[in-house]
Design a protein around this nucleic acid. Sequence first.
DNA 1: CCCTTTTTAGATGATAGATTCTAGAAGCAA
DNA 2: TTGCTTCTAGAATCTATCATCTAAAAAGGG
Lengths: 199, 199
Amino acid sequence: MGRPGKFTEDRILDAAMAITAEEGPAAATMAAIAGRLGAPTGSLYHRFASRDLLMAALWLRGVRRFQHGVIEALAAGDVEAAALHTPRWCRDHLAEAATVLLHRRELVARWPGELAGELEGVNTGLWAAFDACAARLPVVGRERLVFAVVDLPYGAVRRHLLAGQPPPPLVDELVARACRAVLDPVPEEAATGSRVRGG
Amino acid sequence: MGRPGKFTEDRILDAAMAITAEEGPAAATMAAIAGRLGAPTGSLYHRFASRDLLMAALWLRGVRRFQHGVIEALAAGDVEAAALHTPRWCRDHLAEAATVLLHRRELVARWPGELAGELEGVNTGLWAAFDACAARLPVVGRERLVFAVVDLPYGAVRRHLLAGQPPPPLVDELVARACRAVLDPVPEEAATGSRVRGG
DNA sequence: CCCTTTTTAGATGATAGATTCTAGAAGCAA
DNA sequence: TTGCTTCTAGAATCTATCATCTAAAAAGGG
């Protein structure tokens, strides 16, 4: 074969990821990515035909890595673990978490047609996991499940990601508690008694 | 006095808000805002010296309106009402909620120096309300409170706002439940028994 | 030594959108 | 009616940023 590559796809994506996490996706221009890597912009175009493709690849890579743990926990039927995956993963992969969770939309303005299938696959994979898990817990309902595993942890983590900080340990306790409360089939009245009120 | 205004500040902000809610802040160009209003761009500059100032005003107006209910409930010491204010307000002010809650960052890239004081005021107002309320519920702790009133409802509402839909009624129940669970001084073990597990 | 793949470095060109400017119109008061 | 002030009109400008492309050099493998 010819000359071995110096700037691999992964290294390029890592650079793009770092910039995105620090200054947002708008700052991740081709020039900025190349600059961070110490490469000329041409090198990027050798790996990625366009910026859209590059950013889409970045998003896909991150989402796949992130989803893996969620799907696994869901498949095992452990809802609480699925919910806790988010804060834990954020701790272990701060930059990637910020990229994937905070900048969903702006990252890839218009999704490249070439990757339509990939996008589809990512979504259906997660949906399937939810459906399978929801089927096991018939009382709970799919909406509750999504709330417990997606919305709740996301809300818990967002402020810290915005600050560039890993979520503190307290977050896990809050997520776990709220998760259980939301999924418990306990009737309303049982909880009403402990309504919190100051003054 | 001279001729009365045709395109008031509020009408201009409303147009900018509608566009932002539908297509994001990037779509809210001066031309787009003017177009929606049936006005020439010059008219916008008669009211707002720059786009930054316009968008900052839009954000400020929205945040003030939103915060009002939160602060009120917090002052009354009703944490659950404060938490529920978010989904409720989203229902009543869908476009404004999407603008304020979803696009915090991109809305105003660099905050105009002229409005530094306004920004300061908005923040300290909310902080003060939290501090006052936290002082009343010594056991809870400020972080828990912020989680229950800010992070949790935000997460609950985000997906629906993104879809352009008002949050369904179920959201309120989920928020209320989770809120109580998070603030309850109930020891861990009491809840552990009801751990949800499928399979 | 030949061949393939990758790197290098600038040049280019388009796009988009904020901003400005000069006239003219429209209300209000005397 | 007249004059004054404030507002509207809408095109023209202008500037910056960036994505993208090209052509040649370099580095290994066979």
